[in-house]
Amino acid sequence: MADALTAAYALRLGDDALILSHRLSEWVGHGPELEEDIALANTSLDLLGQARLLLACAGEREGKGRDEDALAYGRDVLDFSNLLLVEQPNGDFAQTMVRQFLFDAYAVELWPRLSASRDEALAGVAGKAAKEAAYHVEQSAAWVVRMGDGTEESHARAQSGLNLLWPYAGEIFEADEVEAALAEKGIAVAPSALREHWQARVEPVLEEAGLAPPEGAGVRKGGRQGRHSEHLGHLLAEFQFMQRAYPGAEW
């Protein structure tokens, strides 16, 4: 039983990393400047590395013989459990960086705590991911400030990215029975415990950037339970195409 729960938890974190990595990989070759293109690919690769470790861990805990690829390419929308935030389209560079910052500010609080998990495999992934997230959040925060406090156009774009994505941030802190049960055992980090730390990271950056969260925007959630936005299906159609077209083939 504990294993099925841990599998579900690892899958959530793995799906977040996998889908966000995929979104960033859509930028590669099309970035706003060569140096930034290379930086986006680095973040995408870090997240892909995290995803592979987490999916492999989920597959092991699940005990049904599914490896990283079976989990990544063999599930449909209802079985993906990533946050809605990470599947939202790239939009312009402002939208991408706001999405990244809202996520990074969470990841950088999650991983160091999870590195003390009583599950050794999770603790190991978390220790590695903590260092990556620390760099990611510095970079995405710097861009949010640059754009918010840049030109009139960049400010407007950053603000509209924030308006669009802010409602998806609330889902980060929603806990259900999976996290609750595992947090009690010292295996998972209760997401609700991260909210104030996240706020303490996000607020000063938005303030420096001169950006304000939209009022009364509500909370969009459901990703953890497989209730996704329309975007995920399209993402998977592209991402899973080869494995669907050639089932069982090796690559």
């Binding site: 140096e35 930034e36 290379i38 930086a39 680095n42 510095e138 970079q139 710097a142 640059r146």
Partner: peptide
Amino acid sequence: ADPEMALARARDV
């Protein structure tokens, strides 16, 4: 654009 960005991109590149 600035020294901080230069340091970070030097790391990335």
